[in-house]
Design a protein around this nucleic acid. Structure first.
Length: 420
RNA sequence: GUGGGUGUAGCUCAGCUGGUUAGAGCGCCAGGUUGUGGCCCUGGAGGCCGUGGGUUCGAGUCCCAUCACUCACCCCA
């Protein structure tokens, strides 16, 4: 076959889905405990939504977004992230008229046209939570605490929480200006990318990975000297609450986030083992997002977690216990083809009782059926042959113990349902 | 978008400096007395040697292109 899964898109095979369940269930359970409700928004949206929220000049929109026209000529885009769509839905359905705050969670695929590598695909999954309608630092902290607990629950104990404040639309421009000025004075010594960053996105100067640039930027202006009073107070309160809750953090004045809508708090959880990027998830506050979508001013804060990266890191750290399931269920094997019908009826009866059951569909030899049952990890096999048919009994074989007894089907049914 | 590595059976790989019908292990299927799995043995199926060009009497093996995978960069989860 020549057709393969498209570049950057992966099949999640049956052997892997178990690990996915683990994550999903843990996440959803925590959402329930924290009183978040699930929202499912479309995988594609009006392209304008992302341009306005994520930012026209952000890389995500500029070069990574899947945009296309549908047959009606509408400009659509596959969602590159979750917050924009959730915010759109919040506004569209007038959730600002509900008791505030509104707490939502989502889980699903996102799409970015990027070059695949470890921990990065074109279709990838994110799960995230959002709190709309409150500016309180305690909301920021709840998001962070949730995330920290989520990771702890999975067994991670060496993640690093980096946190920073990127200011607001009032104070950030001053800082960007200062940064740009600082960089301009050293422009010749900076790498090509940084020279470009100095022009278009000074905040990005802070997280260049090249040593020389880092050295040069080490003594660059710090954001905390530029924060306006409300932003500073907010940030300090977030940090104070984190201490109360004993969530370890590291103030990283070089942490910036790629999406333009962030204000105030920005944070990210890092692992050594999440691939070269290291980030398992990140988030922050976005108090101007609703307004940029022409909605009422609705503050918000949230986090997005990268499912593949978390699984990758779990694997690296030996936390993704593949946990081969114990043998379970009943396989119906027959001694001759004319008994198939009876075996199928028995299988359906077992299923009605809630037991896992299956039968042979290939008219194979008894030996082959036994082998199949073994390979497929069935705990029991019911063997129905001509002799059994005459006596109106079956053989119930325990594949684990290698023991087998002759019983009526009813008796076997009772034993099996009692065990399950 | 930029740079490095790789591309041979379902999977993991071998195939030396180009030379006859392309191999192994695992897996799959079937047998190995009488209706019964696991161990062992035997047999079988399965390969446009990523794709397209080129060099050559002859290419899995050399060259070019292309696609895909992979690693890193930009950027992000």
């Amino acid at each position: 076959m020549n057709i393969k899964a498209p570049r950057g898109a992966k099949d999640i095979l049956p052997q892997e889905t178990l690990c996915w369940y683990l994550l999903e269930e843990r996440f959803k359970e925590m959402c329930h405990i924290y009183n978040y409700y699930e929202i499912r928004t479309p995988l594609f949206e009006d392209a304008e939504l992302f341009i306005r929220s994520v930012g026209e000049e952000s890389d995500v929109v500029e070069k990574e977004m899947y945009v296309f026209k549908d047959r009606g000529g509408r400009e659509l885009a596959l969602r590159p992230e979750g917050t924009a769509g959730v915010t759109r839905a919040y506004l569209q359905h007038g959730m600002h008229n509900l008791p505030q705050p509104v707490k939502l969670f989502y889980f699903g695929p996102m799409f970015r046209y990027d070059r695949p590598q470890a921990g990065r695909q074109r279709q990838f999954y994110q799960m995230g939570i959002e709190i709309f309608g409150t500016k309180e630092p305690s909301a920021d902290v709840e998001i962070i605490k949730f995330t920290a607990d989520f990771f702890l629950g999975l067994g991670f104990n060496n993640l690093k929480l980096h946190i920073n404040s990127v200011g607001c639309e009032k104070c950030r421009p001053f800082y960007q200006e200062a940064l740009k000025k600082y960089a301009d004075e050293r422009l010749a010594q900076l790498c090509r990318d940084c020279q470009r960053r100095a022009q278009f996105n000074p905040l990005r100067l802070l997280d260049c990975k090249i040593k020389n640039c880092r050295e040069l930027m080490k003594d660059s202006p710090q954001i905390d000297h530029f924060l306006c009073d409300p932003c500073r107070d907010h940030f300090n309160e977030v940090l104070a609450l984190l201490e109360v809750l004993k969530v370890p953090y590291y103030v990283d004045s070089h942490l910036v986030r790629g999406l333009d809508y962030y204000t105030n708090t920005a944070f990210e959880f890092f692992s050594e083992n999440a691939g070269p990027q290291g980030s398992l998830g990140g988030g922050g506050r976005y108090d101007k997002l609703a307004e940029s979508l022409e909605g009422p001013p609705v503050p918000g804060v949230g986090v997005a977690l990268g499912v593949e990266r978390i699984l990758l890191a779990m694997e690296e750290e030996g936390l993704a216990s593949p946990e081969t399931s114990d043998p379970e269920g009943v396989f119906l094997a027959t001694g001759s083809p004319e008994l198939k019908e009876k075996a199928l009826l028995m299988a359906y009866t077992l299923r009605e009782r809630g037991l896992k059951a299956d039968a042979d569909y290939a008219n194979r030899s008894l030996k082959a059926q036994m082998k199949f049952a073994h390979r497929k990890r069935f705990r029991h096999v019911i063997i129905l042959g001509k002799e059994e048919k005459l006596k109106n009994v079956i053989q119930l074989r325990d594949m684990l113990k290698g023991e087998q007894q002759e019983l009526s089907f009813e008796e076997a049914l009772n034993i099996l349902t009692a065990k399950a």
